[in-house]
Amino acid sequence: MKGWSAVYYRELLILRRRLSRMLASMSVSPLLYLIAFGYAMGGHVRVEGYSYTEFLIPGLVAMSSMTQAFGIASEINISRFYWHIFEEFQAAPISNRAYVCGEVLAGMTRALIAVAVILTLGLFFGVFLSYTPLFWLAVLLNSFIFASLAVAVAMLVKSHADQAMVSNFIITPMAFLGGTFFPVERLPEWAQGILFLLPLTHAAKSVRAAAFGQTPSLFSYLLLFLAGCICFTIALRCVNRARD
């Protein structure tokens, strides 16, 4: 496992260099959602006994932790296709596991920063929820899944266009349908059945339950953990595929 810290350190250096730009970019979408859906459209709407803004923030936390963790895929692709930095990792005496660990941790770090941005924005909208260890555990598991998936996808795609396609067909639909903006229970049963299979649905439910001070479902946590382990294993196997 030696070497994971070097991979992670390199990502942290880049993150530090871009931090102000990243914070600004991480704030834009959640801010727009909060203004449009939370304040303007949902100002008088109550969902499951909470104001819509209160309902929305945990959903945004789950969604942003997913998209930001998955965003590491683009970074890896830029390193791989444009700067050829991936060769530097391949030529180093580090195992695939160390490489994947470093990149996954970088993805999770980005996700945590994005969550911190949303929670800060929430304060400006007067939302004070309960950020317990279970809340953070759900965020970590969710970002673990999507950062691992990101590494796997980054190793498999052959171009940026492929990468964009994965985002359009998997990440975006999940972001909108996985319980971010409305309770999944409002959809027909067949649709609920499909959405039940998506990790984001369980992440959103768990984050929301923990934020509302309720007891989240243990099953959801187990499922997130299992999905994370599967994605991580796939990522490990995909690293060799990136070699020609």
Binding site: A6, R10, L13, E87, I94
Partner: peptide, 30 residues
């Protein structure tokens, strides 16, 4: 891999990192 150093054909420096940081990351990888 520990025995060898590689200078590939295409420039593969981390463009956003400084000269020192590029060398430092390499040292950490080894």
């Amino acid at each position: 891999k520990r025995q060898c150093g590689l200078v590939p054909q295409s420039v593969n420096l981390d463009q956003e990192l400084t000269v020192y940081e590029n060398l430092d990351v390499h040292g950490r990888l080894f």
